[in-house]
Amino acid sequence: MCGRVFDPEEVSEIKLNPLKKRRGDRWLWTLPRRYNVPPTMPLPVMTSTDGVRTIEPMRWGLIPPWAKDPKKLGNTFNARADTIDQKPAFKGAWKAQRRCLVLVGGFYEWRRSGVADKQPFAFAMGNHDIMTLGGLWEPWKNPETSEWTRSCTIITTEANDLLAPVHDRMPVIIGSENWDKWLGEDAVNDNELKAMLAPFPAPRLAAWPVDQRVGSVRNDTADLIERAAVQAALL
């Protein structure tokens, strides 16, 4: 499961129409960086239309077009790679090729270290670059207000060797070499797409223990992503 993320330095909280600038393949946002983002909050999401890439805020927790009440959907913030084209909540977006990249600095995962205690770890790119997670998105029209909401889900796959001691699953990470295919800019078939939903190479990631305060969404300060002063090796 991937249920908590933090922003990279280049991407921050997005509201309405934030100022954005492009520098090569990087996008800079001007609003404050978040360090403890839970589902239902907006995440920066990259899509491509006719080869033009844009980034916009989307609700984390996909709302399929047929939903009447998002609160009754259950968990739609993650979609399993092995059933993504079968589950009612996600198969429409998959078939319609509404694929996206969710931009994060990294994510948190908890390892149970005792009966009650869980040690949280942060996972990020080893080169400190933006982590681009494979996702799906959908537009949804509120039947009561007629307002439109764009929402997304993060796809998960089996854990790699780095994640396995902590959790049996991890988010799908799409490397920059596959952005054009994942975003639909290059022709690709289902088999090629599903091949991208494999565990990301462990040597390209970094992990470290963080303070247990990250367990509460009320905490959102820069020190949450710092290495905690605890003895918590992954292996």
Rank of each mutant, 00 (worst) to 15 (best):
V5T: 12
S12L: 02
S12I: 05
P18I: 05
L19Q: 03
R22A: 08
R23A: 12
G24P: 14
R26W: 11
T30R: 10
P32N: 13
R34S: 15
Y35T: 13
Y35V: 04
P38N: 08
P39H: 05
M41Q: 15
L43M: 03
S48C: 07
D50Y: 02
V52P: 00
I55P: 01
E56A: 04
E56W: 05
E56S: 02
P57D: 09
M58I: 00
G61L: 05
G61I: 07
W66E: 14
K68L: 10
K68N: 03
K71G: 14
K71R: 12
K72R: 13
K72T: 13
N75V: 04
T76M: 06
T76V: 06
A79F: 08
A79L: 10
D82F: 07
K87E: 07
K95T: 09
R99Y: 11
R99K: 10
V102G: 09
V102A: 13
G105V: 12
G105R: 07
Y108I: 00
Y108R: 01
R111K: 14
R111H: 06
S113E: 09
G114T: 08
A116S: 09
A116V: 07
A116W: 05
K118S: 01
A124G: 11
M131A: 15
L133Y: 11
L133Q: 12
G134V: 14
E138S: 05
P139E: 11
W140A: 09
E144C: 10
T145R: 14
T145C: 15
E147C: 04
S151N: 11
T156W: 01
A159G: 12
A159R: 10
N160Y: 01
P171G: 08
S176I: 04
W179G: 06
W179D: 10
D180I: 04
D180V: 00
D180S: 06
L183H: 03
G184E: 02
N189G: 13
N189V: 08
D190Y: 10
N191P: 06
E192L: 14
L193G: 06
L193W: 02
A195M: 09
P199M: 08
A202K: 10
R204N: 05
L205M: 14
A207L: 11
W208A: 04
V210M: 01
G215Q: 01
G215I: 02
N219D: 00
D220I: 01
T221R: 14
T221S: 10
A222F: 14
R227A: 15
Q231C: 03
A233C: 15
L235S: 11
